[in-house]
Design a protein around this nucleic acid. Structure first.
Lengths: 173, 173
DNA sequence: GCCTAGGTTCAAAATTTATTGAAACATCAG
DNA sequence: CTGATGTTTCAATAAATTTTGAACCTAGGC
């Protein structure tokens, strides 16, 4: 209820008002959205990443929300996803309360981390089940053709699990 | 309305009645469903593939529908998808009307074809857009950091397009 | 402690995607 | 041609996923 004592001396508080995405920004966002779609990553996440990717400096929460015109919830969840997959970094300025975000230096590394997080758990979880399916088939005296298929599947799974830590190292390298 | 003249001499016509999936079949289906999910392939498609994969001989439309308990439409669309991506082969017996299906010999090749069909079009379609975004940034005198990022993205896209036909050859090899 | 800027959570709403089933189509035997 | 079998199409429905927004935390300044 109290009227603002200062007009707008530099720290605006009420209506930040961000401009909508420019055509070139939209184009890049479309690209990221499409690519993300292949991996099942939601549109909002791709949009956030794209915005950070074309922006010169790190952006804070409100900028992202404002420029993309998306809800707080989506921005929060999107940043969480990108953080969890090591696709963005926070740049905290000393004495400042807000965090500001920028893309991780290597997009390649980011993608690898992303794939890793999707494929690895599936492979690991499948391991015992696949072995059981093969054993079962052998026990039942299934056709050699089927046994062969299931064996190959098992070998693949094992090899993939062995190779994974080499191709997709967690922290060090 | 006419009563069956023959009891069940071998060709049953009214109630084929297929048995539901066995535990070991379900386990394998779960694996394929999970993996397919990563690539955005629908559950029903993965289930069909899994069933063909554990089955000894080729299966016809009705068997697939019956054992998976899914609708005609889903089976038809699923088979179309698998056909289009060269993941299954039809084995037509001479004189028989129905087609019978079995998985392509190489699952690896199938997966490659699948990836190809998802990623390549996206890369191709993105090419001009990405170039435009980069040109735009240069023209606007954007930060060197941003220019560098966009350049790298362009180089990647180009290289991926060059490599694609080598890694993922369409017919011959 | 108390207040507030900054951010998270999560159930409900909106949107997207997959599945169904009835009608249309195709192909072959007679 | 006719009738039956085998398959595809596609609008309607169901299911899964994403987005929203309001309530709820949390840390830091006073």
């Amino acid at each position: 209820m109290k009227p603002p004592s200062e007009k707008s001396a530099g720290r605006r508080k009420s209506r930040p008002s961000f401009e909508p995405l420019q055509p070139h920004e939209i184009e890049l966002a479309d690209f990221f959205v499409r690519m993300a779609g292949i991996l099942g990553v939601p549109r909002s996440v791709a949009e956030i990443y794209a915005l950070l990717y074309v922006s010169s400096g790190p952006l804070d929460f409100d900028h992202i929300q404002g420029r993309l015109g998306m809800s707080k919830g989506s921005v929060s969840q999107g940043l969480k996803f990108l953080r969890d997959h090591e696709m963005i970094l926070s740049v905290k300025e000393k004495g400042a309360r807000r965090e500001r975000w920028q893309p991780t230096p290597s997009l390649a590394a980011s993608l690898v981390a992303l794939l890793r997080s999707q494929v690895l758990p599936a492979l690991e979880q499948a391991q015992p089940g696949l072995q059981r399916v093969l054993a079962d088939a052998q026990q039942r005296g299934a056709q050699p053709e089927v046994i062969e298929r299931l064996s190959r599947l098992n070998r693949w799974n094992s090899r993939a699990l062995e190779l994974a830590p080499l191709l997709l190292p967690p922290p060090g390298a």
